[in-house]
Structure formats: structure tokens, C-alpha cells
């Protein structure tokens, strides 16, 4: 979401809080587009992206009284979106684990390709990002998925630039540890 869109969204939300249904419809359409892009950039195309979009819209609807018009709209919205995406990733992980455990036949199946599909890699990475501590997750997401500069991230999250750099460094270190571990496991399996 660009700063202009963010301002516009904040304005629409404060009008929606006063009962302006037109503004509310425009806002929800904008948020649906934004949510689709946000999740898509992180996990690639997946059939459950639309579920996350709908969950996010429902939460925005339920939580609209908690939005304070004097505060920026972005952090409020992205906190909801992030949380719904993490919920979806967690529930998918549970389902996947159950499927693998239940299916002994998997052992008899031929070995998978060496290169996993791009959407699997994105999903693994998205899961690793989701497992980072909250502030590290926000910083890494904004810098890598949204392409924001250190200064822009600092402004959006209300942190100093030095703190953003340190947090990002810790985040990347954490990601290297978790995703690197997975790659080594995969190589050993190969």
C-alpha cells in the first residue's frame, strides 16, 4: 500500500465508522486487492489465498471500532492481515503433517524431484518468516516483500533507523538458521 493509498484508506475507514457505506465498500475493495497481493507475494499462488483475504475482511469488519482515525491505517491493517496469514500457514502445516503421518503409503512412493515447486519454496520461506519474533517479522516482511527502504520501515513502525537495521540483521540470521537447516535436511535426504 502506498502512503497515498494508506491515507485514503484511513479516510475511508473514518467515514465508514460514521456510517458511510460507499466509503466502506471502496475501502474493502482496496483491502481485498492489497491482501491478495500481500499474501501472493509471500506464498505464491495458492488455493487458500482467497480464504486469507476473506478472513482478513471479516476481521477488519469486526475490529473496525478499534481503528483510531488519528493513527496511521497501515500498521492496524497489516497487523490483522499478518495474523490471518500466519493462522492460515499454521493450519495448513497441521493439515500437511496429519496427511503425511496418516499416509504410510508415502514411503513406497518414488522420490520427489530434487527441485521443489516454486510455491513450496515460497511457502517454506513464508512459514520461516512467520515463525520469527513479531518485530523481526514486520521488519523483514516490509523490507523484502514490500521493498521499503530502512527509512520507510523506520517511519512506518515508529523505530529508529539503527534499530531497524539491527532487527533486520537478527531476522536474516534467524531465517538463515531455519531455512538453511531445511535445505541441509533436503540435501541429506537426496
Amino acid at each position: 500500500m502506498t502512503p497515498d493509498q494508506e491515507r485514503q484508506a484511513g479516510d475511508w475507514m473514518s467515514r465508514a465508522q460514521k456510517g458511510d457505506q460507499g466509503a466502506y465498500e471502496q475501502l474493502l475493495n482496496l483491502l481485498a486487492r492489497e491482501a491478495r497481493g500481500f499474501v501472493g507475494r509471500r506464498v505464491g499462488w495458492a488455493d487458500w489465498v482467497e480464504d486469507v483475504v476473506q478472513e482478513t475482511l471479516l476481521t477488519v469488519h469486526r475490529a473496525r471500532r478499534t481503528y483510531d482515525p488519528v493513527r496511521p491505517f497501515g500498521p492496524w491493517f497489516y497487523a490483522i492481515l499478518n495474523s490471518r496469514m500466519i493462522d492460515a500457514l499454521r493450519s495448513r502445516k497441521r493439515v500437511t503433517m496429519r496427511e503425511v503421518l496418516d499416509d504410510d503409503v508415502l514411503a513406497a512412493q518414488p522420490a520427489p524431484d530434487r527441485t521443489p515447486p516454486a510455491s513450496d519454496v515460497s511457502e517454506t520461506l513464508a512459514r520461516a518468516v512467520a515463525a520469527l519474533p513479531r518485530v523481526q517479522r514486520e521488519v523483514v516482511s516490509l523490507m523484502k516483500y514490500e521493498d521499503l527502504s530502512v527509512r520507510e520501515v523506520a517511519v512506518r513502525l515508529g523505530m529508529s533507523e539503527a534499530a531497524v537495521k539491527t532487527t533486520a540483521h537478527r531476522g536474516y540470521k534467524g531465517l538463515r538458521a531455519s531455512v538453511g537447516g531445511l535445505l541441509v535436511e533436503n540435501r541429506r535426504a537426496d
Partner: peptide, 15 residues
């Protein structure tokens, strides 16, 4: 979903 949310939206005083 958006249509149904807009149709049920009432004024909501911020907390």
C-alpha cells in the same frame, strides 16, 4: 462477502 459486509455495516464509534 464485501457486499454483505457493506449491507450490514452500521456506524461504529471508535473505542
Amino acid at each position: 462477502l464485501i457486499e454483505s459486509l457493506v449491507a450490514t455495516a452500521e456506524p461504529a464509534t471508535p473505542f
